[in-house]
Design a protein around this nucleic acid. Structure first.
Lengths: 231, 231
DNA sequence: AGATATTTGTTCGTATGTATT
DNA sequence: TAATACATACGAACAAATATC
């Protein structure tokens, strides 16, 4: 029973499925398409092709769940209300569990954010790298639910329209504060200092929330000025 | 632009889509199937039928995300690590925001769990009602991310195999404690007592975690005894 | 490297079922 | 009840991709 749904195991080819279910090609293909969209199977052409059971990837889960949130109005305050409580728990959970590869990946993202605060496309790369730091932690987290929840909010911050506008302009304080906190967190992880990791992350999130909300408010005011000027 | 993706707006019929994209019926239908599985459109037959844009429902999002977690090994400890931090925040966020309908729904679930602790199918209904209490809170939560995160872990607790085994046997302490906490929470919500709501929920989750982990450990021991006896 | 066989991908024409009017 | 409009399903054929020899 378990072997039947083991990743990598292959489904019968279309012709066999047609015979098995007494359905036409089109119907079988629609069913396979459904499974494919859900990320449950992958389909290849050619000899030894066909549908094979796959593990649903994080990327696919993220895409599908994003569709749900598309119709919900999400604010920066909503996101940070969640991050403020999840991220300290995440930091706690990875203490003593970071491999050398994880530490190198963390260092790499810190390095990208080391220089001067930048705007435009370069600044955006800095912001993404900051979020990648947190993605690495989620990657090392042994709790699958906590890990997904954290990565998903990171994804929201990478894609949200409001954030794009903020990321477009240089964020001096945000960049400096973020870099300092990530450095301190890295040290805490190296020294297996669980209380410090938790505390630093809590402060980091509180500061990030403050600065992001402040930037968003500035943009809002600029927008209102433009609207008033147009009237 | 916005009106084009407004829920309820209808897509061109299949024949029109065939002309628009220069594709055959089968190809168009596979594309529509993809959108349908993602919960983005609903398709009806008959006159005034065809594909219409829909809002992705919570139920669909839950199903699709469940596929992702199917391949991840989730423990009760994982779930409660998340619930312990999310639910107090949820309780806080709904203070002063519960409608009469919400309060009635909460009362209803509390009523189901009022009697003697039961096992089997009846006991399972009690456990589900306990989780429905938390679902109502999520329903009233103004933060879409927090709301979904809480409801999803509730869904995990409703479906997890380990939980089914626990729910099958009468859980005296779990039932009594849960009923008491839900009653106290209800009072805190009525009195708009934010600190009390947060504190009660924190204690409630800590107790629930303790009792659930203890029950799971008992089942584990019983299982081991059976295995040893069989050898 | 190239020919070949295998399997999915796409198309067309047609027939059937179903909901609205 | 009958007519209409639309999705749903079928089957045969051809095109494209890909592994194997």
């Amino acid at each position: 029973m378990d072997e039947e749904i083991a990743p990598g195991s292959r489904l019968p080819q279309e012709r066999a499925l047609m015979a098995r279910f007494g359905a036409s090609r089109g119907t079988i293909r629609e069913a396979l398409k459904s499974l494919e969209v859900q990320g449950l199977v992958g389909v290849r052409t050619g000899p030894r092709g066909g549908a094979a059971v796959t593990v649903v990837s994080y990327a696919r889960a993220m895409e599908l769940l994003s569709n749900y949130f598309y119709s919900q109005h999400i604010t920066l305050a909503d996101i940070y209300a969640v991050r403020k409580i999840l991220e300290p728990q995440l930091a706690d959970s990875v203490v003593g569990r970071l491999s050398d590869a994880h530490l190198i990946a963390l260092e790499y993202t810190v390095g990208i954010c080391a220089g001067e605060p930048l705007g435009g496309a370069e600044g955006r790369r800095q912001r993404i790298a900051e979020l990648d730091f947190h993605d690495v932690l989620a990657d090392a987290c042994p709790n699958p639910v906590l890990s997904f929840y954290c990565r998903f909010v990171n994804g929201l911050l990478k894609n949200l329209a409001v954030c794009d506008e903020i990321y477009d302009r240089p964020q001096a304080e945000l960049t400096r504060e973020g870099h300092a906190y990530h450095n301190d967190l890295l040290r805490a992880f190296r020294e297996h200092d669980r209380p410090a990791a938790r505390r630093l992350m809590r402060e980091h999130m509180a500061e990030a929330e403050r600065l992001m909300l402040s930037s968003a408010a500035k943009l809002e005011r600029r927008f209102l000025v433009l609207v008033n000027a147009a009237e």
